[in-house]
Design a protein around this nucleic acid. Sequence first.
DNA 1: TCAAAACTGTGTCCGTCGGACGCTGTTTGT
DNA 2: ACAAACAGCGTCCGACGGACACAGTTTTGA
Lengths: 230, 230
Amino acid sequence: MADELARLLWGPQARPRRGPKPALSLDGIARAGIEVADAEGLAALSMQRVAELLGKTKMSLYRYVPGKAELIALMTDRAVEDPPDLAGGDWRADLTDWSTALFRAFAQHPWLLETTVGARLMGPRELSWVERALAAMDDKGLTGGERLDAVVLLTSHIRGIAQQSRASGTEAETRLVTALAGVLREHGDDYPATLTAMTSPAEGRDQALTFGVERILDGLEALIARRAGS
Amino acid sequence: MADELARLLWGPQARPRRGPKPALSLDGIARAGIEVADAEGLAALSMQRVAELLGKTKMSLYRYVPGKAELIALMTDRAVEDPPDLAGGDWRADLTDWSTALFRAFAQHPWLLETTVGARLMGPRELSWVERALAAMDDKGLTGGERLDAVVLLTSHIRGIAQQSRASGTEAETRLVTALAGVLREHGDDYPATLTAMTSPAEGRDQALTFGVERILDGLEALIARRAGS
DNA sequence: TCAAAACTGTGTCCGTCGGACGCTGTTTGT
DNA sequence: ACAAACAGCGTCCGACGGACACAGTTTTGA
C-alpha cells in the first residue's frame, strides 16, 4: 500500500501493453482534482466531483488511483511549483527567497496547508524544496540534524503565517474579529496583555512573514557564528 | 451562528427553568468527545460515537450543541490544561517553559493539532495561553504586533515539532522511513544535500523542539538588544 | 486469421456520516 | 390543575468512500 503510493509518486508511468487505451491519465486526474480544490476547497473534493469534471463516472477513477488519499498525494506534488533557483552566494538571501516562494505556493493553493501535514511520503517536487533549503545551509558548520531542524522551523513558520492570512479578508474573518472584540470587551480584564497587544496601533501589519523569517535567520546566524568562533 | 459558539465557549451555562432536567451537560459531552478523540483519533469522532459513550442516541446531543464543529471547539478548549505559571523574572526562561508545556499539551491530545488550525474563536483557556506568552514579553521594546507575531512564530514551531513526533514510533512511520530510504537509494543523486543530511550520524536527536525555541529566542533577543541600543 | 488474455469503464450495492423535522413524554410556573 | 416549555428520540435524507462483478475493447500469440 505504501509502496503503491511510492510507485505512483516516483515510479515511471508505463502504459499497459494490453487492453484498451486508457481514456484518462494520472496527470489529468490530478489536474482535475487541483481544479476542484482550488475553486471550492479540499472539503469539496470528492471522487464524484473529480469524475464529473472529467466526464467519467466515479468508479473509473479507481482504475488509476487506489483511493482518495493517494489522489490527494498526487495532487499535492503536482500543485507545488518548482522551488526557486538559489544564487548560492548569500545563505540568508537564499533562504529568504525560498521562504517567500513557499509562502506564495501556499497562497496559490491554500488546500496545500491541509494536505502537507503530518508524516507522509513526499513526491519529487516537494523533496526538491527540502533539497534547496538544505543546500543553502551547506558548509556552515551545522550538523545534518540541525539543518533538517532548521528547514522544519522555517516551514512551520511559513505554514503558520499562511494559515493566518488564509481567511484574511473573508466575511468569516470579520465575523470572527467582531466576536473576539466582543469577548475582549467583556472579559478583557482577565487578558490585559492580549488587550493591549491587539488594540495597539496597527503599525504597518502584514509584516508577520518577514518578521518571523528574520528572527529565525538571526537565530541561525548566531549559532553559526558561535560554531565558527569556537 | 458565530455568536452561538461564543455563548457556548464564553457564556454562562444557565439551567433552563422549565421542562425536564437535562440528562446531559456540555461538560459531560465534551469529556466524552475528548475520550473518543484521545483513544481513536479525531477521524473516529462522530456524533454517533459520542452518544453511544453517553448511553444516549445521536440526536439528543443536538439539544446541547448546534453541530459537530461546535462540539469540537468545546472539546478543544476543555482539553488544553491551564498554562504554566510564569515566574516573570526571565523572559527567555518563561517562554521556554511555556513552549515545553504547550508541546506537552499537544502530546497528550494529538488531535489538538487538527482542531487548532486556521482562524477561529478561541475559548478562555486557549486565550489564557496567548495571554501568558504576551505577558512574558511586556516592556521589552516590542510593538504589540511584533509580540503577537512572536507568539504565532513560537506556536507554529511547537506545532510543527508535535506533528513530526506524532507518528514517531508507530508502525506507519517505519513503513514511511523505509519507503523514503528506498526513494533516496534510487534518486539520491538528485538530492545530494538531503541524502547527506539524512544519513549523517544521529547525534542525539529529539533536540528539534529546544533547537527551534532557542533559535527563535536568540532572534528575538537580537531584536530587543537592537531596540534597546538605538 | 482468430480466439484468448488483459485491461478499461461502469452499475449496483453497502455502511457511515451530519443533520432536518416532528412526535412524545416530562417538568415547572401560574 | 393545567398549559407552556423543554428533553429525548425515531425516521428520513443526501453525500461520501469504496467493494465487486460484469460488459466492452484492444493486443498478443498461435
